[in-house]
């Protein structure tokens, strides 16, 4: 059995031509698209597709970062609250500087910088507590989740933080406009996804993240700086939460304590549907993108269809998530 030399016998067990682990999520997405197209004529319209892709962008951008965190064996439950907190802070910063800077591109850039910087710091805090202080990621991010959520409630005084009206027309195009008929959130999401996929597959950082998630001892003994890799995944995710928030704030120009509720779970679900292993060691960014699209399409199709009680939306989502994961399960080979 082990006698076959490495380069003479590549075909025997190199895997079947149709690998369900790869095809599973794509298949689920295709089924959803077909169902949608059959149920409603407007499903494939330009407007609907733009709507679905744009609104996927927030979760999608975050989920790309989450893919790296989960691949390296971590978890981040704080991203939803973090997004709300960053949105609140971004609004406060822009409102506060409006009298000095006036409504214009400069102020928007300051707001963006504030969002990215806050995301970076928030990600660093999570990473620091997890790597340097050696506290479980689940506990750390559960804690910061509560902290950011109550900070935004406090900033908003229990209500809603709204961007000054004069600023809204200036910032609005970030969500609604684009180039060549493709809106900015879609463009940014696509860029983040492509960059993420390339880093995961072709950069040393992606390889190191998978190694750390697969077995951090092996990584350490292979001269990989395990703490640094872990830290970077959280910082990277924090910055992406900032990017997602930059897309989010222009949409409604407001943030409240109900902003970003359950985004963390949607992002994690998308990552897992996409085929990344929850226990770490293997991740794929393109799968995450498909996972995000599956989740938003389910909502979209349910809204476009009559006949299903809206009370059952959650149940249908749950079934589809579980099915998508079952579809791609590795059939246990004898070994």
């Amino acid at each position: 059995m082990s006698a076959a030399s490495a380069d003479t016998n590549p075909g025997a067990r190199s895997g079947p031509a149709l690998d369900l682990r790869v095809l599973g999520p794509i298949l689920a997405l295709a089924v959803l698209v077909l169902t949608g197209a059959m149920l409603n004529d407007n499903f494939l319209s330009y407007a609907n597709i733009t709507n679905v892709l744009s609104r996927s962008a927030f979760i999608g951008i975050i989920a790309v970062g989450m893919t790296f965190v989960i691949t390296s064996g971590g978890l981040d439950l704080s991203v939803g609250s973090m997004a709300a907190f960053i949105a609140g802070l971004m609004i406060l910063v822009m409102n506060g500087l409006l009298p000095t800077l006036g409504p214009g591109v400069a102020l928007v850039l300051v707001g963006m910088a504030a969002a990215l910087a806050t995301g970076l710091v928030a990600g660093f805090v999570n990473g620091f507590l997890i790597t340097t202080m050696r506290i479980e990621a689940f506990i750390v991010t559960l804690g910061t989740m509560g902290i950011y959520r109550s900070l935004v409630t406090w900033l908003a005084d229990g209500g809603t933080l709204s961007l000054d009206f004069g600023m809204r027309t200036v910032i609005r195009p970030i969500y609604y406009d684009g180039i060549l008929g493709i809106s900015w959130p879609i463009i940014v999401f696509a860029l983040v996804a492509v960059a993420g996929e390339v880093i995961m597959r072709r950069a040393a950082f992606g390889r190191h993240a998978a190694a750390v998630g697969s077995n951090d001892q092996v990584a350490r003994y292979s001269s990989v700086n395990v703490d640094r890799v872990r830290m970077l995944t959280y910082v990277f995710l924090g910055i992406l939460v900032g990017v997602a928030t930059i897309m989010y704030v222009p949409r409604l120009g407001s943030a409240s304590s109900s902003t970003g509720v359950l985004w963390e779970l949607e992002a994690i679900a998308a990552v897992i549907i996409g085929g990344t292993m929850l226990k770490g060691g293997f991740g794929r960014v393109w799968g995450t993108v498909i996972g995000v699209l599956i989740l938003s399409l389910i909502d979209n199709i349910l809204n476009l269809t009559d006949g299903v009680s809206p009370y059952l939306n959650g149940a249908i989502q749950g079934v589809i998530i579980i099915l998508a994961v079952i579809l791609q399960r590795e059939r246990k080979a004898d070994a």
Partner: peptide
């Protein structure tokens, strides 16, 4: 989100 879908539908 719901209103966007209503408008499509």
């Amino acid at each position: 989100t719901v209103m966007q879908d209503f408008l499509s539908k």
